[in-house]
């Protein structure tokens, strides 16, 4: 049922949009092509950033540092079910969308789009924002220097978003299948049987 809703949402929305546009007499094909040209131009501009980030995350992983890091942090991350592989994404996401896209695309290629890491990375990318970019752009545009609690509040939004992504990814595709409870929600007495991540 939930899967069907997700599966129908995008085609449904595209179909509906197209239908409304046609009814309103819009030259849909011409508008599509104009928009697509803008999109392609943007993607070409982004390409060097993606190559740059592929090199950085690739080196980080292939050198064995990431797996070392995973070993060191595993005891701390395991109760939360957070795979260390997504840490680079968490760190880079608030600063650069192009870099985050590079990291996610790299994770999807390395671990598979339907792996837990792949799913989690995609959900995290989809539910977070380039916070620092937005803050500097919007506050800078009107010349505001005293931002009071705006930065910590926005970072709180990011952190809650990541935790919620982790929880929901576990809920949807986690070890115990749909509606399994993430281990950090269990009382400590039951943590003895936690699944290995």
């Amino acid at each position: 049922m939930l899967a069907a809703v997700s599966a129908w949402m995008l085609p449904g929305l595209i179909g509906l949009t197209l239908l409304i546009a046609v009814v309103r007499g819009i030259n849909v094909y011409e508008e599509f092509v104009t928009g697509a040209a803008d999109g392609a131009r943007l993607a070409v501009q982004v390409m060097p950033y993606v190559i740059g980030i592929y090199i950085a995350t690739g080196l980080f992983r292939e050198s064995g540092f990431l797996s070392g890091l995973t070993h060191v942090f595993a005891p701390f991350l395991r109760p939360f079910g957070l795979p260390a592989e997504v840490l680079p994404l968490i760190f880079i996401r608030p600063f650069s969308l192009a870099a985050a896209i590079g990291v996610v695309s790299d994770l999807l290629k390395t671990y598979g789009p339907d792996s837990f890491i792949g799913l989690l990375a995609a959900v995290m990318l989809g539910s977070s924002e380039t916070t620092f970019y937005v803050l500097t752009l919007y506050l800078g545009a009107v010349g505001i220097r005293r931002s009071l609690y705006a930065v910590p509040l926005c970072l709180l939004g990011d952190i809650v978003g990541y935790l919620a992504s982790l929880w929901l990814t576990t809920l949807f595709w986690g070890m115990g299948g749909f509606l399994s409870v993430p281990t950090f929600w269990l009382p400590s007495s039951r943590l003895g049987h936690r699944p290995s991540v």
Partner: peptide, 25 residues
């Protein structure tokens, strides 16, 4: 990784073209 990044970037061109086209409609 540079080569992989390039092919990922090329795929990205198709993705953004489709999405920008639809969002313009």
């Amino acid at each position: 990784q540079a080569t992989k990044g390039l092919s990922a970037g090329l795929e990205l061109i198709a993705i953004t073209a489709v999405w920008f086209g639809l969002s313009r409609i």
